[in-house]
Design a protein around this nucleic acid. Structure first.
Lengths: 339, 339
DNA sequence: TTGAAAGCGCTAACAC
DNA sequence: GTGTTAGCGCTTTCAA
């Protein structure tokens, strides 16, 4: 008995055409679903194709149409649950319109970003959905010049006109801060990301705006910006808590920072919300799981992802802004302050 | 002043060749880095290419070589932090060897899985790394017949010989259960996934094995299998806790189940570990954040992902098993039981 | 070391 | 309705 036959070479359209005794065009019409094909012919072709284990090559098709039908997703860290949620939403919507998603994680590193975008451009993706570092202006311009749709999420790149999808960070931060101010807090710490990032600076602006609205001054020693790594975030949180005249409340800019802050608070032996109130941007699963559950600014993360998938392929370079409202979810990590 | 020039059509190798006044082959040699090219020629070509904003088309290249240099990753839910960690590890390693990753999420649905694998096959990916549902045998066989490398992770598909990478679920579950038994627990609940999944049945086997080793019987009413959705998991956890003679300890099979169990325990007004001890498979970030921190069986998740990337493209169909050891991390959710 | 040419699998335009 | 054909952008002989 001979070796089981394992075709090294996948069947091509030509093979199918020959086996079904029809022309190449006919097979193409069957699989691309346009043009007329007699029902009987179609059936015969499909049978033959199934027998040959034929799958149309996206490579051949893409080359001919000179575009691949997939989209690139550029996040900073897919193990961050926020990006996980976003990706899940994006994936579902992309699949619904028949597009594959190529995933890239930059780790906030501009060089890695450059490398990945270059590769996506080589793949001739139809569009790129990105949480960009704020660098690489030339690169993004090249991408647009090449005809690749670009949709930024949460952040922008100075000098680049591109569609941008985002939650209203400023409004979210403002409502969180207002919540704390209304509870009587006057010394509210802010732990945020690098202000080079749009989302970070908008959140900080919201925090300041809320203070200004009620004529409370911001103590600059209580405003700390840090990179999104566990170590630096933790160190920054500690610095905030150890300030000479420490804050009675803390507003943290995302879930990674929130983890760090919560850990630091615990390590300090402080209790939430008795010693310090806590509000976090992003409603990740653990916010409800810890004790007390954390008051958060919730983003419609999954919808954001789905919307990105639906938007990116039609994104016009003329800056188009899509702003979704976030929502304050009050839980038990925030309490009234009696000075 | 005329409109800024935005080439609708990306420059091709031919354009570069013409502009640099060399042959097509020469340009190809420059960018594919094989064959000899004079240094001066190379430089000229590179300059011209940069000026034209040229990027080699992966489509053309893939068609010619009849394989795309990317790999498909098929998870069930990328918003699950376990898959996020895994993907992060995979991405890093794949990037290091110059491969793109196409991400797919099945939601444990065989039909969705079929759809995605079909698409990956059409894309002519070099390999597929999958956490498969246990169905679709024919599909996986087709994939292998087409010459696509397949690497299963954590699970297998009946009837398919494929390389499989996994943590030693049985050993992990066993050590978790032994830990509880050593603490004096005799009624240990098990909340696991569907036993159709290899990982689930291995974990259950480990749980049973630990009992057998010390001659403690397993009360079948304390063994509950559930789907990985929040609702069903929560309902199952409640059922376990409300059993007539409830368990004094609980071993849960993954982080989603763990979330559900913890929530159910809280809603029941029980306290951990006084009323019930808890061990979970997967060391996700919130395990350290909740109070008390949860004892877990930690997987080297990121390494698993990196190893998958490095393995998949050489994976031989002859079943090859790679088993990594998990590690019990004792924290404060488990305590001695004094019957 | 370089140029010319064939062809990878597919689509679309055209002829029948 | 269906067959034929000309490329899409690239790699790779084969000559020069």
């Amino acid at each position: 008995m001979p070796d089981e036959q394992r075709p090294r070479r996948p069947a091509t359209m030509k093979d199918v055409a020959a086996a079904a005794d029809v022309g190449l065009g006919t097979v193409s019409r069957v699989f691309s679903n346009n043009g007329k094909v007699a029902a009987s012919t179609r059936q015969r072709v499909e049978e033959v194709a199934a027998r040959l284990n034929y799958r149309p090559s996206a490579l051949g098709r893409g080359l001919k149409l000179s575009t691949a039908s997939n989209i690139g997703l550029l996040v900073t860290d897919i193990s961050n649950p926020f990006y996980g949620e976003f990706a899940e939403g994006l994936l579902g919507a992309a699949n619904a319109i028949g597009h594959h998603v190529i995933l890239c994680a930059t780790g906030e590193d501009p060089a890695t970003e450059r490398e990945y975008v270059d590769l996506l451009l080589q793949e001739r993706v139809g569009g790129i959905v990105a949480f960009p570092t704020s660098e690489n202006r030339e690169l993004w311009r090249s991408a647009q010049d090449l005809g690749t749709r670009v949709l930024f999420v949460d952040r922008t790149v100075p000098g680049i006109e591109a569609a941008c999808l985002s939650v209203d960070h400023q409004a979210g931060a403002r409502s969180a801060t207002e919540h704390l101010l209304a509870l009587g807090h006057r010394r509210i710490g802010y732990l945020g990301g690098p202000d080079r990032l749009t989302s970070g600076s908008m959140r900080e602006a919201g925090y300041r705006r809320a203070h200004a609205d009620v004529d409370v001054g911001v103590d600059e020693r209580l405003v700390v910006r840090t990179r999104f790594t566990r170590e630096t975030a933790y160190a920054s949180a500690v610095r905030l808590l150890d300030a000479p005249d420490p804050p009675s409340a803390l507003f943290v800019g995302n879930n990674v920072l929130g983890e760090a802050a919560l850990t630091a608070v615990r390590d300090r032996g402080l209790s939430v919300p008795d010693d310090i109130s806590l509000v976090m941007f992003d409603d990740v699963s653990w916010a409800k799981l810890v004790d007390p559950p954390v008051t958060v600014v919730a983003q419609p993360t999954r919808q954001l992802g789905a919307m990105a998938a639906r938007t990116v392929l039609t994104a016009r370079p003329e800056a188009q802004q899509l702003l979704l409202p976030p929502q304050l979810v009050v839980r038990r990590s925030t309490a009234a302050f009696y000075g």
